Computed example of a mutant assay.
Amino acid sequence: MKHPELTNEAIALLKKLIETPSFSSEEQGTAKHIENWFQQYQIPFKRTKNNIWATNLYFDEKKPTLLLNSHHDTVKPNNGYTKDPFRTTVENGKLYGLGSNDAGGCLVSLIATFTHFYHQADLQYNLVIVASAEEESSGENGLNSMLSIIPKIDVAIVGEPTLMQLAIAEKGLIVFDATVTGTPSHAAHPNTDNAIYNTIDVLKWFQEFSFKKSSAVLGDVKMTVTQINAGKQHNAVPANVNLVVDVRVNDAYTNKEIVSILQKKAPCSEIIPRSLRLNSSSIPKKHPLVQAGIALGRETYGSPTLSDQAVLSCPSLKLGPGDSRRSHTADEFIYLNEIEEGIDLYIKILEKIL
């Protein structure tokens, strides 16, 4: 173990976080545990709602600033759990519990890394750490609410489970509410304008439509109809069918461009985006932070999943211990040695640029 005290304390903190329910906007308890860490290491911190943040001891406004960020909220446990999601158990090197992989392991590893560098003078970058709330719900009181409060950020590491590989780009997200209309009628009478039947061709259009521009890192834009709702009684043809469309946006398009294309081409009566703020994000492969990871044998890739990177306007790298495929699954877990490796690699990468 390269950093035994920090690793052991980080695992101890993760166990406390797991055992404290922290659904999005209900993170008061886990925020307190994170506060206790900074108090233990005598690091001044600030709390804004359920977001905990701090800067390194020798913060210098003349230097660029690197953000270390991960979240301490969780989704609700699904019905497939066979273990208590709020009880930590360790079996065969696996630490089980809700939020262990997404993103507790990342968060405690970044907190340990920040603590390691906190007292060091003459760093090339300032460090800011934000243990953020409401990531899982893309809530208004999460990292996005902190960007006007913390110092201006020049580059960021966002802690999400990537097996400590380098996610140098991430797809954005737009959720659309679409409407297919028809003529309402009694089911007993002829109707050649049935909204539900009209939806068949619309669904086929969404299934077959493709956006022209692909990305070398993120591939194609992916569009999926994820919800459909219509009708209230068996003998009445409804006036409309409501669809929800999930669009994962690559870095070849802006969110506004996607909206413009769909509003011109989609065969719907109406298609309206819920939000345009969850943008695709990336960091140049030549950036010193990425090159530091490559020098340590890490590989680069594009991530299809959304994180708090979406609210950042600066270059950002998604990197963390754990495996994204375990996120939101029953009996979620992270390997203890992944946390050990995470802390070690975070420190080694930052040593190359700090």
Results as ranks from 00 to 15, higher is better:
Ser25Gln: 07
Ser25Gly: 04
Ser25Val: 09
Glu26Gln: 13
Glu27Val: 14
Glu27Arg: 08
Glu27Trp: 10
Gln28Pro: 07
Gln28Asn: 14
Gln28Ile: 11
Gln28Val: 11
Gly29His: 05
Thr30Phe: 01
Thr30Leu: 08
Thr30Ser: 05
Thr30Ile: 13
Ala31Gly: 06
Ala31Pro: 07
Ala31Tyr: 01
Lys32Trp: 01
Lys32Leu: 10
His33Glu: 14
His33Asn: 12
His33Trp: 09
His33Lys: 11
His33Ser: 13
Ile34Asp: 04
Ile34Val: 10
Glu35Gly: 05
Glu35Cys: 13
Asn36Gly: 04
Asn36Tyr: 02
Trp37Gln: 04
Trp37Ala: 14
Trp37Lys: 08
Trp37His: 05
Trp37Glu: 02
Phe38Pro: 01
Gln39Tyr: 02
Gln39Ser: 13
Gln39Thr: 07
Gln40Tyr: 05
Gln40Pro: 00
Tyr41Thr: 01
Tyr41Ala: 03
Gln42Phe: 13
Gln42Val: 03
Gln42Asp: 10
Ile43Gly: 08
Pro44Asn: 05
Pro44Phe: 06
Pro44Gln: 07
Phe45Trp: 13
Phe45Glu: 11
Phe45Met: 13
Arg47Thr: 15
Arg47Phe: 08
Arg47Pro: 15
Arg47Gln: 15
Arg47Glu: 14
Thr48Phe: 15
Thr48Gly: 07
Lys49Glu: 09
Lys49Cys: 09
Lys49Ile: 10
Lys49Gln: 10
Asn50Lys: 05
Asn50Val: 00
Asn51Glu: 09
Asn51Met: 15
Asn51Lys: 12
Asn51Trp: 08
Asn51Tyr: 08
Ile52Val: 15
Ile52Asn: 02
Ile52Met: 09
Ile52Phe: 05
Trp53Glu: 09
Trp53Val: 12
Trp53Leu: 14
Trp53Ser: 14
Trp53Asn: 10
Ala54Leu: 03
Ala54Tyr: 07
Ala54Ser: 13
Thr55Arg: 05
Thr55Gln: 08
Thr55Val: 12
Asn56Met: 11
Asn56Ala: 01
Asn56Ile: 02
Asn56Tyr: 11
Leu57Ser: 07
Leu57Trp: 03
Leu57Gln: 10
Tyr58Glu: 03
Tyr58Ile: 04
Tyr58Cys: 13
Phe59Leu: 03
Asp60Gly: 10
Asp60Arg: 01
Asp60Val: 01
Glu61Asp: 04
Lys62Trp: 00
Lys62Met: 02
Lys63Cys: 00
Lys63Arg: 04
Lys63Ala: 01
Pro64Gln: 02
Pro64Tyr: 00
Thr65Cys: 01
Thr65Ile: 03
Thr65Ser: 06
